[in-house]
Structure formats: C-alpha cells, structure tokens
Write a protein that binds this DNA or RNA. Structure first.
Length: 269
DNA sequence: TACATATGATCAT
DNA sequence: TGATCCTATGTAA
C-alpha cells in the first residue's frame, strides 16, 4: 500500500521491466480502454515518481499518470496470469505483465498537465535528499497548521502518508498538535532528515520499517520485524517501545494518528 | 452475506 | 466535517 516509498520503488521497477521493448497496453476492465490505446504497442522511455504520483513517459509523447490513492495496487504477474475484471490497466511485454487495480487516478496527459501536477507538490524527500531540507523548512516553519496535518499535506512535503507521519513525529519527540512555526530550525531540519532516511529505507525494503536496531532488542529476524516494525502507528493502548507509558490514539486532519505522550513533547513540555 | 477497514484525496455542505 | 470514489481483505453474523 502506497506512501511515497511505494511509488518510487514502483517507478524503478516499472522502468526496469517495461523500457526494453514495445509494451502492450490493455484495460481488461474497460474503463481505461481509450487511454490504453494511446500507448498500446509503443515504448516506455522512463518512469518517475513525484511524491505519491507516478508518471510514465512514452516515445510518442504521451504521459501515463497514476495515483494509487488509498486502495490502488500495481503488481507484477507472470505473462500467463489472467486479469480479473477489476484490472484497470495491464502493461505487457514479452516476459512480464503489470496490472493496475483500484487507482484513484489513471489517465494519459501531456507535458503541460504534468508540469501543473508537479507544481502542486512540495519537496519530495526521495527526489531531493538532503538538499530539499531548505524548502521544507521554509514551508513548515511559517505555518500555524499542526504538524500532524502539515505532514499529510502534499504541498508542504510530498510523499508522506498516515503511517510515516505518526512515526516521524515519534522519532523526533514532537506531538502532532505542535504547529510548524513553534519549531526551531534545528527541529525542522531533523524532521526532514528523518523523513529522507525513512523513505529511502522504505523504498529499498519495499515496506515501512521505522524501528531502529537499538530499540529492537534481540536479533532482527523477518518474523520479529513483521511484529515490531513501527513505534506508534495503530498501537493505541499498547505500551511504548521506549518508555513505560501507553500510546495515545487521536485524530488529525480527519484521520487517526498515534503518539506517545511521554516521549513526545508539546510546545510547553 | 454483510460489514468494517485500509499506507488518499476531493468535493459538497 | 461528512460523503464519496476505487478494490481487497478480514471478521462478524
């Protein structure tokens, strides 16, 4: 499921699999037949991610724009795998088939539309790395919006979702209701650096893991990680991994958020 | 079978 | 704030 790390990984995997020959594009579901026909039989030049948006560039100038939303999936299958009727788009080469289901957006756009879309996005930690910190700090330090909401707002920073926002605030020891302009420059820089580190790890592992080896305790096995990958997300009422307190569940920007009231400080704490 | 839920975003009220 | 869209999965009935 998709936060920025998923989309960047997807962009890399798609480019690797689909840019070596002509691609057959189909919409088994039928809802994207017109769009699929625009790229059917042509070559993909490259695939790129901007935050949670995926753009695939084709030799005939068309750009495929995909946003997975909450439930969308874009998965790799064997060529003989038969698509179900929910498959919006199937991209096929001589050796592999990628299938898209449940996307929030799937359309063919031109370069103007692409430029417009990315103009609406804040700095992407996976595109900019360390050097994006300046823009992020400018955005975040000037807003009275609580951090819990600001981190989900793609205009402030592109690619964070509901899991990462809770985890990032935990790792930085800051409560979700603290606003950006209450932060010091150092705190804002640390939030950016934490995010770059987490998303890079998420892309490499193709999953979200935020817990550090030091906090993990015993040997880090896959099974242990499956049970202990996160500090606070969906851990309401459970005990904190770093202190003896309990994790609190709250609401921020209309969605659930979790934090440790002991490890994470408010403005006055 | 039905319902709740999900790592998202937009539009209506 | 609430409704809505999109699909798959897990749990309850």
């Amino acid at each position: 499921m998709p936060e920025g790390h998923t989309i960047h990984r997807l962009a890399a995997d798609l480019e690797k699999d689909l840019s070596n020959g002509p691609v057959t594009a189909l919409s088994p579901q039928g809802r994207f037949s017109d769009g699929a026909s625009l790229i059917d039989g042509t070559h993909m030049l490259r695939s790129e991610a901007w935050g949670k948006h995926l753009f695939c560039w084709w030799e005939n100038g068309h750009i495929l724009h995909i946003h997975l939303g909450l439930i969308g999936k874009f998965r790799k299958f064997d060529l003989h795998h038969q698509p179900s009727e929910t498959v919006r788009l199937r991209l096929e080469t001589a050796s592999v088939a990628w299938q898209l289901t449940g996307p929030q957006t799937c359309s063919v756009i031109d370069e103007d539309e692409w430029a417009y879309r990315i103009s609406k996005l804040g700095p992407d930690p996976l595109r900019l790395g360390k050097r994006g910190g300046k823009e992020f700090c400018e955005n975040i330090l000037s807003t009275s919006i609580p951090l819990g909401a600001a981190l989900l707002n793609q205009q402030f920073i592109a690619g964070i979702g509901n899991v990462y926002r809770s985890e990032i605030l935990f790792l930085n020891g800051i409560r979700p209701d603290v606003s950006g302009k209450e932060l010091t420059l150092k705190q804002a820089e640390e939030i950016w650096d934490t995010t770059v580190m987490l998303l890079r790890k998420g892309k490499a592992w193709n999953r979200i893991v935020t817990i550090t080896p030091e906090d993990h305790g015993s040997r880090v096995t896959k099974k242990a990680l499956d049970e202990n990958a996160l500090y606070v997300y969906k851990r309401g009422g459970l005990s904190c991994r770093r202190c003896s307190g309990f994790i609190t569940q709250s609401t921020s920007a209309g969605r659930s958020i979790w934090y440790c009231p002991s490890c994470q400080k408010g403005t006055n704490a």
